[in-house]
């Protein structure tokens, strides 16, 4: 009997330890390393950064990389531009996603499952290929320009691809489902009697929407906005494929700093700054999810 209990305990420990150790090793430790390298100096060596402890064993770290990020206007502009782009895409996703989620939540159960399937379907198709699809649409001799010229609206093809507008379109397109799904979840479980009750008490359809539906969908709105904003901030593929050569968003700058300039410490510092910038939205998201889970029970 005692050995059986010991065997149980062994199983318990394995279940606890394996995923725990895996995450410590492959998730937490790498973050420590990024932090460490961001405090090192770039040197011409392999790997190209100075060791944390120099030959004499004393701690040798520097905040130069971060100082550089703050002193160089380019980086400030890059961060600002990333925020603006991500925010614009988030707002557009919300404006488009809310009525869509609302429409799905209020449709007949049979159509609803089909509509949801069509929202989820692009998730399963390669992200890269979906972004690529826009290249064919937006190019100088792409579908849209050909169509406009065929209509006679323009003589010359318009430059759409490789502009900021193309990045904005790409972000909105790629992350729209991330907005729709959480919004749908909150709208679907909302009691429709509440809207009827408001109208019964004298609120018009529009007033009832702003008094009841909108505040009750808040959790979904916050979740959706954060789920679009956070990944859009660090996006690399979309600015690279759809944006012009000067479309400097953080994700791309980080990549270039690392591979083109081979400045590992600076790239690490850029990553740390990006993470710091995202701390606020991530905390908002976590708090929102926790409150939502509490209310659901």
């Amino acid at each position: 009997m005692a050995s059986l209990i010991q065997k149980d305990r062994l199983w318990w420990h394995i279940t606890v330890l394996v995923p725990y150790l895996w995450l410590l090793l492959f998730f937490l430790l790498p973050f420590g390393i990024i932090l460490k390298i961001s405090l090192a100096e770039p040197i011409l060596a392999q790997p190209p950064f100075s060791p944390t402890f120099d030959d004499t064993g004393t701690l040798s770290i520097t905040a130069d990389n971060f100082a550089f990020l703050f002193s160089d206007k380019l980086y400030a502009l890059t961060y600002l531009k990333s925020v603006i782009m991500a925010a614009a895409a988030t707002i557009c996703c919300l404006l488009l996603g809310f009525p869509i989620a609302y429409g799905i939540a209020r449709s007949q159960p049979r159509t609803r499952s089909l509509l949801l399937l069509l929202i989820v379907l692009p998730f399963w198709i390669s992200f890269l290929l979906r972004v690529y699809a826009w290249m064919g649409l937006l190019g100088n001799y792409g579908v849209i320009n050909n169509f406009l010229m065929w209509l006679g609206i323009t003589e010359q093809p318009m430059q759409i691809l490789y502009t900021d507008f193309a990045i904005f379109l790409g972000l909105t397109y790629s992350y729209l489902p991330f907005m729709i799904l959480p919004l749908y979840a909150t709208l679907e479980r909302m009691d429709l009697d509440l809207v009827d009750a408001a109208m019964d008490l004298g609120a018009s359809r529009t007033t009832a929407f702003w008094d009841i539906t909108w505040p009750l969908a808040r959790a979904g709105v916050i979740a959706g906005c954060m789920l679009v904003f956070i990944p859009a901030m660090g996006e690399y593929v979309i600015p690279f494929l759809l944006g012009g050569p000067d479309a400097l968003l953080i994700g791309r700058v980080l990549f270039d700093e690392f591979y083109v300039n081979r400045d590992w410490p600076l790239a690490s510092a850029v990553a740390i700054m990006l993470l710091l910038l995202l701390v606020v939205p991530i905390v908002i998201l976590q708090k929102n999810q926790a409150r939502d889970a509490e209310q659901a029970t």
Partner: peptide, 17 residues
């Protein structure tokens, strides 16, 4: 929720180290 560029970079630096 952490952007892929950060996860990717941190893992690469980890593997190199």
């Amino acid at each position: 929720i952490i952007p892929e560029v950060i996860t990717g970079l941190s893992l690469l630096l980890f593997f190199v180290t």
